[in-house]
Each structure stands twice: as structure tokens, then as C-alpha cells.
Design a protein around this nucleic acid. Structure first.
Lengths: 345, 345
DNA sequence: ATCGGGTGGGACAATTATTGTCCAACTAAA
DNA sequence: TTTAGTTGGACAATAATTGTCCCACCCGAT
């Protein structure tokens, strides 16, 4: 690690606090485009006064302009943000956290963005940005990318535009529609990814809650079989991780199903599979989708999930996640994860 | 320049202040070896409370240990100081100052240490340290170094020990004794340099205020001529710059001489020459010594002088200083110099 | 034309932190 | 024992920070 930064840290230990706070504010202004003091303070969870203090400073430093319609980031501000990105990372101790998680769960890589998605839109945006960037790094031309549903994954689309163009990627939904809001369904998301990157998408709508018979029938249909074969050719899977109960509720699961899930001790959810706290898949939504076994032969798995309250869920999935998984999460979830692990030992 | 540091500076502009303050305190503790809070606060010109605040922090960071006999720097503290040396330089804007002075006076190089020697012993020490280091860099084995008198030059001796050994340098007094305190005379200093570095020294004591006749006589003496020839072989001259009036007083000059000097508009002094504000030599002490013309053919000139009040004097000498001059000064003098130049234009 | 929701900047009391300045207890050396 | 040094505690006075208003203004929608 950089020797100089460490020395600075030693002699001015309050630096990271200041740096992070202002970075956060500046980043929020960047993301919001043009924003007023009060809305901003809500966004970054600072009091109005403090926000004002910081923005005044940023203004004085020429990093933002501040007019009667709101505050905007300047070219210089953007440059500073960009330059500072790595330092923030280093000074926040996130790098250590990343290594720790990477080792305890035996993952390919862990990327932690500062902040907590829990109520903080900023961290959410960062999560999306970073995920988009990673997707860009991990894919090659004409590969197939499988995507799941969920808000976190959906939000990646808007940051994809800057990357991934000209790669002619094909996006497939990792699972059929499973009763969520349309905007959060894998199908919709796969389509939106394709639109954003001039790619293709293959979607598949199936009614939920098929009877076992109907399900088995469907699996023999050529269209479906074709879809399943696509999963075998998938190079990258990008998926979220959800809280088991919350997902069940969001999916309008039947009371019986919810009870089953609850009794099985499920805490986490991914790809429509429910995992208990030991990482064992204890239940699955009965619809067409990528199989757990297929995951193991996929080149890259991008797990994107943040928010401290999701920590338990994330932990449960990671317990048995394939080693080629790249976890993209936020500070809040990461810290909570580490804490929970510490409590156990 | 380092992009990262600039970005940090932009977003945390109060950083240099904190950094410099703590650096100063830490440096003072290093130099003092073991020191108490009150003595320290006097040394660094901070109130007792503020000193305490900073030392508490440094202690907490493990950069100093603090016992009931005083405070001491730790190994880690030394490391931090060393690592931070360059940053301090950069963040203080001293580098820009250096370049500015180097260009306006057409010098080989300018080195500015933080602080103001004016009443601040810390800056004085740094001046000596840096000068010693430069001397080490600029000399080669068996070369001849001419030194002048003055407190600033005298203080270099104690930092020479770490460097310049094994080079077998010969130190000669750039001028004969000229009525100053023994400790500040060129002869004494040349000898102390030699002692500190296991070198040789050639000294020459001559009574001051020789009559013109006697002076001319002396110049023909073999011993003297030999000395003068040494000046031609001198590779490095290391000299101070003094305030004209102050030097005249220190040298117990006769009232007539003082009047002459004053009327000639002398403001600066170096090598026993007095310079007016245009950099013209308007008077010289009549004693054996290196000639202005000889300076021009010397490889390296090390001008060492600090303190804001000396700025005018320094400026006057620099006006016509040989281009191979390396100026070592402090922040106080440098800023004052720039200010005076600005006022003229 | 006017209203509503947004903007920045001004103001101010309450609270919090900082500051300067003591003093007591202690230690090492003289 | 005395002396000159040290730290850490204490505390009132002062300064800075903070949370919270309000106001005038601008802009777009109504």
C-alpha cells in the first residue's frame, strides 16, 4: 500500500472523515445533476446546516457552482471525484474489508462501495455503477449474460450505457417471470440491458405456480429446452441476493409456500432459490430457470447486493457460492457481515 | 506534480494547516530529543493548550511516547516525518515559491524550508540540515570548500556529521577574521566543519582594519598568496547573507565606516562585501578573502540565509549573484522576498 | 397572473468545542 | 531536601458549531 497515504493518515487521522463526507456530498451533487441544499441534505443524511457548510466549501474550492436554481458539479469537481475514487477506497478501510470477505467466503473478488444502500440512494447508485463496470470487464464479444430480477440489478441498466457497447452481448433472463413487479422481473431487466447496450435479449414468460405436471410438460417443450441450453452457454450471470421473507412476500407467494419457506429456515434468496443460514438451498420457485449446478460451470458470477439489513441473506448465499463469484456490495452490508461472523466465533 | 495530492488539497483544503502544525510539533520533538509540553510550546510558537492537543493526538497515534519526564518521538514517528517531508514541501506551496525565486534571480536552485527562522529555532535547524545535505550532494572527494562566518553557517556544523565523512574535504575561511564573535568567525567555522567531517582546514587570522599600505604589503606575503591561490581552487563556497547595518554593528565598524556604508545605501552583506538594493557592491571590508570575480568561476555557491527580516538583504545580494548559486532559505524570507518584488512591480 | 415548490442566503439562540491558565502530583537530579 | 522539570486534571471564558427558522427570489405549471 502507498506509504505516503499511510503517513498522512497517521498524522492527520481525522482526514478520512472529512474526505468521505465531502466526497459523498460531491458525488451526490454529481448524481443528482442539479439539486438544492435541502434535498441534498436528505440524500446524504446530513443536517441542512452541515450540508450547507460543506457545499459552501466545495463552492469556494470551485468544485461546484451554486446558483439560485441549485448546485451543480463543475468539470474540476468531476475530475477531483475521479481522482479521489481510489483514495476513498483505501482510506475507508474498505480494501481490508474486501480481502477479509473474499477469503472467508472463498470468492473470486469482493468490491465494496462506501455507504449503505439502506435508505441511501447514493450507495445504490455506486453499486450499479460498479456492477456495470465489472460486467464490462468480465465480458467478451458475443457472450451470453444471464440476469435475474430485483431492484438492485434493474438499476444497473442506466450505467451500462457508458460501457459494454459494441460487444453484441445477449441477455437472457435467468428465470421466468415470477410474480414480481414488471419493472423488477428478470425478463424486463434483460430487455432493458439489451436496449442500453445495443445487445440482444431472449426472454421467456411463464405463468407462476405451475402444477408439477404442467411444469414437467413445459420442460419438454422445444422453446423451453432451447432456453435451458442457453443457460449452458452462459458466460456471465449477474444476480441479486434478497431477503427470503421479503422476496416471498414480494412474489405474492401463497401462505402455504411462505410457511414452508419459513419452516425451512430460509433467510436468503437468489435465482429463485431459497437458502438457509448454512447456505443450503431449502426451497425453489418452480419455474424455468438456470439450475444451481449450471452456475458452477459459468465463467463469472456477479452477485450484487447491498444494505446492512440484507447482510444475513447475503451471508447465507455466499456460504456455498461458487468460487468464481464476484461480490459487489456496500459498506453497510460488508460491515454487518463481518460483525455477524465475529459474533459466531 | 502529483495529481492525487492536488485533488486531496482541493477537497480538504484545511489539510496543509493541520499537517504542517503537527509536522512542526513532531519535528520539534525529534530535534529536542526529550522535551516537556511547555518548553515545546515555546519552541513551536503555539499556546500550551494547543501544543497539548497536538501532542495528545500524536501520542494516541503512537508517533510519540509521553512519560512523566517528557515526550519522545517513536520509531514510527521518525518514519512518518521522513515520509511526510516531501508532502509538506509540496502542500505548503513551497515548491512554487522555489521555482519563482529561482527564475526571478536566475539561480541554479532554491530550497525553502518551512517556517521562519525569525525567532523560530526549528526553521533554523532545518536550514542547517538542508545546507549540510546540499553540501554533501555538491562536493566530491578532496575538494576545497570555502566558508564564511555568521550564525547560520556556524549551525550547519552539527548536521554535517551524518554526511560528508570520508570525502577528505578541505575547508578554508572565505575571509580573514573580521571582528565578530569568535564562534561566528569564518576561521572558527572552517575549523569546526573540518572537525565534524574528519577533514582539513586552512585558516588565516589577520588583524582587521589594516591600513591600505599594510594591506598591500600583506597581499604580497607568500602565506597570503598561497591562501589566495586556494580560493582559485575552491569548488564550493558556502556563505551566509546578512543585513548590512547589523553586520556593520556586529563587526564593531568605526562610526565613519558605518556612515560610509549607510550613505552608499547598503542593505545586504556577503563575504565582507556590502551590496545596495540594486545588488551592486558598494563597499568591502579590507581584509584578505575571496574576490567577487573569483566567485564566478567557483563550481557551486551555497547561499544560506533565512528569516523574514533578512529578506531585503537576501534580495540585494541575489540581484547579481552568480547563476551557479544555490539558495537555501526559509518560508518567512522567501515569502517576504516575493512580496517585496511584487510591490515594486 | 398567480400559485406552488423549489432555490440560496440571512439570522439567531442553544449547544458544543476550544482555549488559556491555573494547580496538584510526581520524578529525577542536584 | 530542594529544585526544576514533567504530566494530567480542572474550569471558566470564549469561540465555533449546529439546528432551525424565515425571507426573497426564481421558474414552471396552472
Amino acid at each position: 500500500m502507498n506509504n505516503l497515504l499511510q503517513a498522512q493518515l497517521k498524522i492527520v487521522p481525522e482526514m478520512p472523515l472529512l474526505l468521505q463526507k465531502r466526497y459523498k456530498v460531491l458525488m451526490a451533487i454529481l448524481l443528482a445533476g442539479e439539486i438544492g441544499r435541502r434535498s441534498l441534505s436528505e440524500l446524504v443524511h446530513l443536517t441542512e446546516r452541515e450540508t450547507r457548510k460543506e457545499t459552501d466549501l466545495l463552492n469556494q474550492q470551485g468544485l461546484i457552482t451554486i446558483s439560485n436554481v441549485g448546485m451543480k458539479i463543475t468539470k474540476e469537481g468531476k475530475d477531483v471525484l475521479d481522482t479521489l475514487k481510489d483514495v476513498i477506497h483505501e482510506w475507508s478501510g474498505l480494501i481490508q474489508l474486501e480481502q477479509q470477505l473474499q477469503q472467508t467466503y472463498n470468492l473470486s473478488r469482493v468490491i465494496i462501495v462506501p455507504g449503505d444502500s439502506e435508505g441511501n440512494n447514493l450507495a445504490k447508485s455506486l453499486l450499479g455503477q460498479v456492477a456495470a463496470k465489472q460486467l464490462n470487464c468480465l465480458t467478451q464479444s458475443k457472450q451470453i449474460v444471464a440476469v435475474t430480477g430485483g431492484g438492485t440489478i434493474a438499476s444497473i441498466a442506466e450505467y451500462l450505457t457508458q460501457f459494454v457497447k459494441q460487444k453484441a452481448l445477449t441477455y437472457v433472463a435467468a428465470r421466468g417471470g415470477i410474480g414480481e413487479e414488471v419493472q423488477l422481473q428478470a425478463n424486463t431487466i434483460a430487455a432493458s440491458f439489451a436496449t442500453a447496450t445495443n445487445g440482444l435479449s431472449r426472454t421467456l414468460y411463464l405463468p407462476d405456480h405451475l402444477s408439477e405436471e404442467a411444469y414437467n410438460m413445459m420442460m419438454k417443450e422445444p422453446v423451453i429446452k432451447e432456453m435451458l441450453e442457453l443457460y449452458d452457454q452462459t458466460s456471465v450471470v449477474i444476480h441479486g441476493i434478497g431477503d427470503a421473507m421479503e422476496m416471498a412476500r414480494r412474489r405474492n407467494s401463497t401462505p402455504e409456500e411462505i410457511q414452508t419457506i419459513e419452516e425451512a429456515g430460509a433467510v436468503g434468496e437468489a435465482f429463485g432459490y431459497y437458502f438457509n443460514k448454512d447456505g443450503k438451498a431449502v426451497h425453489r420457485i418452480r419455474t424455468v430457470g438456470i439450475q444451481l449446478k449450471q452456475l458452477e460451470s459459468v465463467q463469472h458470477l456477479l452477485a450484487v447486493a447491498g444494505g446492512s439489513s440484507k447482510a444475513t441473506a447475503i451471508g447465507s448465499y455466499l456460504k456455498h457460492a461458487p468460487p468464481q463469484t464476484v461480490l459487489i456490495t456496500d459498506e453497510g452490508a460488508a460491515k454487518e457481515l463481518v460483525k455477524q461472523n465475529r459474533d459466531i466465533n
